[in-house]
Amino acid sequence: MSGELVGLVVVSHSGRLAEGVAEVAAQMAPDVTVKPAGGLPDGGVGTDFEAVLAAVTEAATGAGAVVLYDLGSAQMTAEMAVESLPEPDAAVIVDAPLVEGAIAAAVSAQGGGDRAAVATAARAAAGRPEVADTAGAVEPGGEAESGGEAESGGAGARAEITLVNEVGLHARPAALLARSVADLDADVRVSLGDTDADAKSVFSLMSLTARKGDTVVVTATGAQAEDAVARVTALAERNFDE
């Protein structure tokens, strides 16, 4: 499975930092290879070329790798490691916030994104995600009902979903939702009140801060709009697998 997905490498001056970031990212993307490469062989602070090269080599075996780094020399060490690969094009180094970038990249990779898409997801994790103001565009949820109900018509589909899981659209559920629609040919939006989010972006979803008891509206347009709404509805009915 992981052979088909883009792998990730987290290069840090600290072994514990790299492992921690990899741990958090891997939680969002169970099938993605996330390799930490931090610290020196003796446990000290620094970046170890051999360790980075080994991690990049392992992560890049499938659909290539995206490499994130923490500080200056980690970038240079990563560059040298990538240049040392038999096929340097197999890995992309991205300038992205380490934690948010790794998570966004992991979710994108889990959804089957290619190297460019995963790298773009990581870079886009900088700063606050874009949240469109769509006041009036969709009716905020009226009848709260666990699991929600879907309606569809022509070009689009729509469902209202009341969140009954404990953490609402927090990190893990947001990642599951984004992954569930990532491969569909549809523009999928999730809105809460006056704000809406791109359902394929985990950070956009998280920025809604939709909590337990909130009713969100899922709208989709495009060829697979109905599939998209059905998948999100099914996910909510499964209580986001909590």
């Binding site: 970046t47 070329f49 051999e50 020399s73 240079m76 060490t77 040298m80």
Partner: peptide
């Protein structure tokens, strides 16, 4: 130097 230095001096002097 690339393998052993561990800081920025490794990639820089190594290169």
């Amino acid at each position: 130097l690339i393998s052993k230095v561990g800081g920025a001096a490794g990639p820089l002097y190594g290169t």
